[in-house]
């Protein structure tokens, strides 16, 4: 009996050790966002302050054009994800069904190339096209990452759906397009949800592309948070508050979609109904 309890304690301890870096970061950020600057600079560090600095959150909204950046983020993420799905899902289907491994590898190589290496040429291209100053450069450059992501997830997903289902549909009188829309697509729903969420997480959190391509009006949230660091002073409190606010939508989305993600990532592992 004691053996069992000891084992359980050992397991919990191990879990704590592994999870702690992630959790501690998050908790420390939360603590920072609720402390006045004096507590943030204190030594020994203060984890739970005597007075909560709610004003940090107010400041985020008051001192910045926060809603504008939120709207920018929403537009960039939404459009980039939508376009990625519209392009990536049929592409993944085509590659899976035609067994076009070579195209798949080409897409993978595009994904493996560091984003920064095509950032400068793309910047020049956008400038030439007079797109700088709009949100389009950010949307388009996100596609470089999100499209391969969606293609690869969907490819794996479509490969696991039995071909007989589509053959049955084509015998039943469906055209190729109807087979895709009425049979392949509904079955691949968990895969679509997974690529949707991963694509949103990428776009929402992306910083590097934004910091290069965005100006004052077209900033997205991560860039806006970065711009809170000024030359004179780093105001940790509002910075942490802003970072938490930025994280919140993705966090909520992931929590709601967690069930779908797990179903999506394990689909095909066992023979199901």
């Amino acid at each position: 009996m004691t053996h069992k309890i000891l084992g359980r304690i050992g397991f919990l301890f191990a879990a704590l050790v592994f999870v702690s870096p992630v959790v501690l970061f998050f908790l420390w950020m939360l603590s920072l966002s609720l402390k006045f600057e004096i507590d943030n600079a204190a030594y020994p560090p203060v984890f739970i302050p005597e007075h909560f600095a709610w004003s940090n959150y107010v400041k985020v909204f008051a001192e910045n054009n926060f809603f504008r950046y939120f709207w920018n983020s929403l537009l960039v993420t939404g459009t980039a994800t939508l376009l990625a799905l519209v392009i990536g899902v049929p592409a993944g289907y085509g590659i899976a069904r035609l067994k076009a491994q070579k195209s798949a590898i080409v897409i993978m190589i595009a994904r493996m190339t560091p984003g920064l290496s095509f950032l400068i040429p793309m910047f020049l291209l956008f400038q030439w096209m007079n797109l700088i100053g709009t949100l389009w450069p950010q949307i388009i450059i996100h596609l470089v990452v999100t499209v391969p992501l969606v293609v690869w997830i969907m490819m794996g997903y479509f490969e696991t759906t039995p071909i007989e289902l589509e053959e049955a549909a084509s015998i039943d009188g469906a055209t190729s397009w109807q087979v895709f829309r009425m049979v392949a697509l509904p079955i691949a729903k968990p895969g679509i949800v997974v690529s949707f969420i991963l694509s949103i997480i990428f776009s929402w959190n992306n910083f590097v592309f934004g910091v290069v391509l965005a100006n004052r009006e077209t900033r997205t949230l991560p860039v806006a948070v970065y711009n809170m660091l000024s030359f004179e002073q780093v105001s940790w409190g509002p910075l942490a508050a802003a970072a938490l606010i930025v994280t919140l939508p993705v966090l909520i989305l992931t929590m709601f979609a967690q069930k779908e993600i797990v179903a999506g990532l394990t689909a095909g592992a066992v023979k199901g109904g």
Partner: peptide, 15 residues
């Protein structure tokens, strides 16, 4: 789809 046949598959292939 133009042959007017119906087929029953080994693994049923139900949607």
């Amino acid at each position: 789809r133009d042959r007017d046949i119906a087929m029953v598959f080994q693994n049923y292939a139900l949607y």
